[in-house]
Amino acid sequence: MFLNAVVIVLQEILEAALILSLFLAFVRYLNLENNDSVLRRRIWVTLSIIFGILLAWTYSHNFSRISDSFDYVGLEITNASIHSISCFFLVLFAWLLPPQQLIFDVSHRLLALTLCMGIVVMLAILREGSEIMQLVGGILNQGQAGPPIFYGGVVGAGIGVSIGVLLYYALTGLSKERSLRTCVLLLALTTGNMAAQTILLLNQADWLPFTPTAWDTGGLLSESSVLGQLAYALIGYEATPSIMQVGAYTLGLVIVLLSPISRLAWSTWHGKAS
């Protein structure tokens, strides 16, 4: 039970930690902490985590009802909605990011940007938190395997949070240009991932027609391997994606990469940065 708990908790925490680290790196890039929004910045993180946990708790408590709805594919529909909303706000976030580094240019979009980040983090916590609650709540209530699950959860959470923290320091430790490029790229990959997940879930619910597998890289990098799981959690790696999933992934990726901020990231930085 120890290892299962590690794997499940790690996967979930890693996905949420990645998004949070990414946003915090963006916030730092935007120099928002120099603005008068220092308080608000701390608050949006805390608030979205709290709301996310509350939502996750509500989700877990209505789990059976949601699961039974839509002819027993309610979970897929709900999760697909959550993924597509996250995807939408990630795209909105990318397009709202100002193409200049000037603070005053940002301030009027600050609320909208903060809202986007808050919603995405909240939904990430909702998605990942509800699964952890299912595992921990469902199994602990039966009085089985308490310590192994507890230890496993702690180890999984510890590894996930550590990777998140180190990722944040890695992103912010890079030069401004590289940091921005990496952040934009990660944002694009995350968006693509969300879009592909939405398609997969709708496929699983049979709401979308079957499309053949695009390729099979299972021999190259197995999804069950440690590296494969890490890649799955970070960029949504699938060994055998369907054509429609690949299409959705590419669409999400491209829409983010078309945004003004990413054009700035790959422009030659004509002395715009101070």
């Binding site: 789990f63 039974d68 027993y72 594919v73 979970l75």
Partner: peptide, 30 residues
């Protein structure tokens, strides 16, 4: 079982939690 379970398959690209003492549906294939 009274405990929840998560049906998972890397090969099928499927992943779904089933609560204890309940039923659910997963589509696979073709």
């Amino acid at each position: 079982d009274p405990t929840p379970e998560e049906f998972e398959s890397f090969e099928l690209n499927r992943e779904k939690i089933i609560a204890g003492n309940s039923q659910t549906v997963i589509f696979i294939g073709p």
